[in-house]
């Protein structure tokens, strides 16, 4: 009896279970997503809401816009340095935590290394802003104490170095994320493989190179993609530390979208930036999802 009851309702029940999720996704994701693409071909103001169809001229303007060039360049720099710095350092940390120290020590160090991950970027940004204060900040005091000169335009005031300072702070907070993911991957490697390598006379570095790395290849790719996607989405660090300045030198795509839409009021133009950001992140995201499912 109950089976019949179940089967009859089976046609309705799954859709009933799915409806709330699909309604949410439709209203607050699918619809805005479509709007982003469609309205990137319009010019409209934050307030006036009068839509003017302008075709691809938002995109043409973007190509010539120095702010976009800076934002795109900074995004690419962020992606490149994230991979070059965070991935190797995070992976080596994970490997040392995995096999280099006793398990008690590993747990203590992991607690320390992962702890910045639970802090808000805003809190971390505000903290570093005080540390980097050009007049009375700790960083300048340290640099002076060892007999060097802090940058005369200030850590975050010099357009040539500000973006790298922001990166360093972002890495300070998020290298632990790479370590976390890689550590999880390394822990899955069977102990026998390492024993076999040791019998063959491999030292810790050799084992890392020939046993650990090949075994976590997939995790490495997924982590790299996640790091790249994260770097493309950076907003909070820049907003808090420099607001995109000095003179737009530290703009990234997300801060540019915010500035164009909510400060300059050019919503259509902001949508065009969004579409390009979406293409980049969604592209990387799909690759990441593919790799994740294989692993």
């Amino acid at each position: 009896m109950s089976r019949v009851y179940f089967r009859r309702n089976n046609q309705v029940l799954p859709y009933l279970f799915l409806t709330p999720a699909l309604v949410f996704l439709a209203l607050f994701m699918a619809y805005p997503l479509t709007e982003t693409v469609v309205k990137s071909f319009y010019a409209y103001d934050l307030t006036s809401r009068v839509l003017n169809l302008v075709g691809i001229s938002n995109y043409i303007e973007l190509v010539h816009d120095p702010m976009f060039q800076t934002a795109a360049k900074n995004a690419i720099l962020f992606v490149i340095f994230s991979v070059l710095v965070q991935i190797p350092l995070g992976t080596v940390l994970a490997a040392v935590l995995d096999r280099g120290v006793t398990s008690n020590a590993s747990l203590t160090f992991r607690t320390i290394i992962f702890s910045p991950l639970v802090l808000s970027i805003v809190a971390v940004g505000l903290l570093w802003q005080l540390i980097l204060d050009p007049l009375v900040g700790l960083a300048s005091a340290v640099v002076k104490a060892v007999g060097l000169h802090p940058p005369p335009l200030g850590w975050l005031g010099d357009p040539k170095i500000a973006i790298y300072v922001i990166m360093a702070i972002a890495f300070w907070q998020y290298i632990g994320f790479v370590t976390l993911l890689m550590f999880a991957g390394l822990q899955r490697i069977p102990e026998e493989l390492y024993q076999a390598a040791t019998l063959d006379g491999a030292g810790p570095i050799t084992s890392f190179w020939y046993v650990s790395l090949p075994m976590v290849q997939n995790a490495l790719i997924v982590t790299s993609l996640l790091t790249m996607i994260g770097a493309l989405r950076v907003f909070d660090f820049v907003y808090i530390l420099t607001g995109g300045g000095p003179a737009n030198a530290t703009q990234v795509p997300a801060t540019m979208i915010y500035k164009e839409a909510f400060f300059l009021g050019r919503m259509g133009y902001a949508n065009a930036v969004s579409v390009l950001l979406l293409l980049a992140t969604v592209g990387l995201g799909f690759v990441q999802i593919r790799f994740s499912r294989h692993s």
Binding site: A21, L25, L27, F28, M29, A30, Y31, P32, L33, E35, T36, K39, I229, R233, F235, P253, A254, I257, Y258, A261, M267, A270, N271, S274, V275, L277, L278, T281, V282, G285, F286, Q288, I289
Partner: peptide
């Protein structure tokens, strides 16, 4: 739904705000 995972809030901020 899997595909939706790739869409960042930052990328659809303006129409999301409009909504």
């Amino acid at each position: 739904i899997i595909a939706a995972y790739a869409i960042p809030l930052h990328g659809i901020l303006v129409p999301l705000y409009d909504t």
